[in-house]
Design a protein around this nucleic acid. Structure first.
Lengths: 220, 220
DNA sequence: AATAATTTTTAGATTTACCTAAAAATATAA
DNA sequence: TTATATTTTTAGGTAAATCTAAAAATTATT
């Protein structure tokens, strides 16, 4: 199969392609914490192996084969996160780095049995959907908290940032998955948002609001 | 810390040193499925890093630091094997290769919580002792089945060979951990052993008998 | 003890993933 | 539309772990 490094490239290209279409060399370099020249080398290799389509100076897109490989890695990553939180009592801000390693263990039997052991979970501790063994998963519908209007209600269903610092901050504010919130006000001065959560009113920065995903129930 | 490959060298040197004292280049090469020249290179590196004592042409021994590192890897390997068998319903002949990968995941928190989740097991599915988090474990007392005398009774407590083929064979013969056996006869012709197990008499080859470990209760 | 056989090491290459520095292509601005 | 800035690629090189072939040291044999 693919090497550890190739797998990381595929995963990162996959995530970058979720947002933009064509994925650029510099964007990959930044995510991989490496230099653009190294990315060019690796892209050529991945293209030769049929994982990506590549036109010089135009960036890359995943092939069917590349996307399948990437989704398999995402599936492993998210299942291991569930294991760490549900079975080993890790907090949601502690699992990312360990899952980054576990996702590269190569055994189909292992991941299928892990899936079963966990009860075939549909989403991970951050609310991200877990692909099934055929790579299928529901495209999650969400509205960023920052895009809700005054008076809107919603439930927190995910986050778009997995850093420990961010997640710990949310935890402290009580902004965890499943919580009901309502938008009370948006501050003109700094764009911060006043929300009502568990009967209490709190203020969150625009930066935080951008990375909280909700399923909005629409107007109050 | 150490690389994946360095860890494998340390583990193999540790296991080879259990039997013999000084570990030889060729022996390591065979276990690592590599060439002696490559082993010499790696040994020099491990010596520089303080994991082994090395005198040219004389083989290597682990330093305190090297032994501790090796024991930590063995601990991880055996805990993961318990996880695979106890929680994911793997058979004892299916776990070795996956555990070879899992043992290299670098997270102290992970392994400590896994240990707790499994109930601090003292031995793995093959009967090998699991070092605790301080690297301590009871030196197991055992007698090889081949060394038992006619009339001796014993309990199967381990195996000294982890290949899937060997373990499947034992499974088929009913020779699993915890089973009581008694030596009925030893065949002059080929050294095969007649044993009584679960009321039935079976014949096992000398080669099989060499790799079954027992706690003998002495004479009948 | 000299010769033969074995084991181990050295020397010089190879591969993978990375690097820096400079050149080439593309995009942006005057 | 030429000049400037940005992005991407090429060229040449490095470190880790491996290799083959040949040399050196050790061990075994006669």
């Amino acid at each position: 199969m693919q090497s550890f490094t190739e797998e990381n490239y595929l995963k990162i290209i996959y995530h970058l392609a979720e947002n933009t279409g064509n994925v650029q060399t510099n964007a990959i370099a930044e995510q991989m914490q490496t230099k653009p020249a190294s990315v060019t080398d690796m892209i050529k290799k991945l293209a030769e192996k049929g994982f990506v389509d590549y036109i010089k100076y135009q960036g890359v897109t995943l092939t069917e084969k590349g996307r399948n490989a990437a989704i398999e890695i995402v599936r492993k990553h998210r299942l291991w996160e569930v294991f760490l939180v549900d079975k080993l009592n890790f907090k949601w801000d502690e699992v990312h780095d360990v899952a980054e390693e576990l996702e590269h263990i190569k055994s189909t039997a292992l991941i299928e049995r892990l899936d079963e052991f966990l009860g075939f979970p549909k989403s991970d501790p951050h609310g991200d959907p877990i692909p099934d063994k055929n790579g299928r998963f529901a495209k999650t519908q969400f509205t960023k908290l920052i895009d809700l209007k005054i008076g809107d209600q919603g439930t927190i269903t995910g986050v778009s940032q997995h850093s420990s610092a961010f997640l710990k901050h949310l935890e402290k504010l009580g902004l965890t998955l499943g919580k009901q919130i309502e938008i009370n006000d948006v501050t003109d001065f700094d764009g911060s948002v006043e929300i009502l959560i568990a009967g209490k009113q709190i203020n969150i920065s625009r930066e935080v609001a951008k990375h909280i995903l909700t399923s909005s129930n629409g107007k109050n």
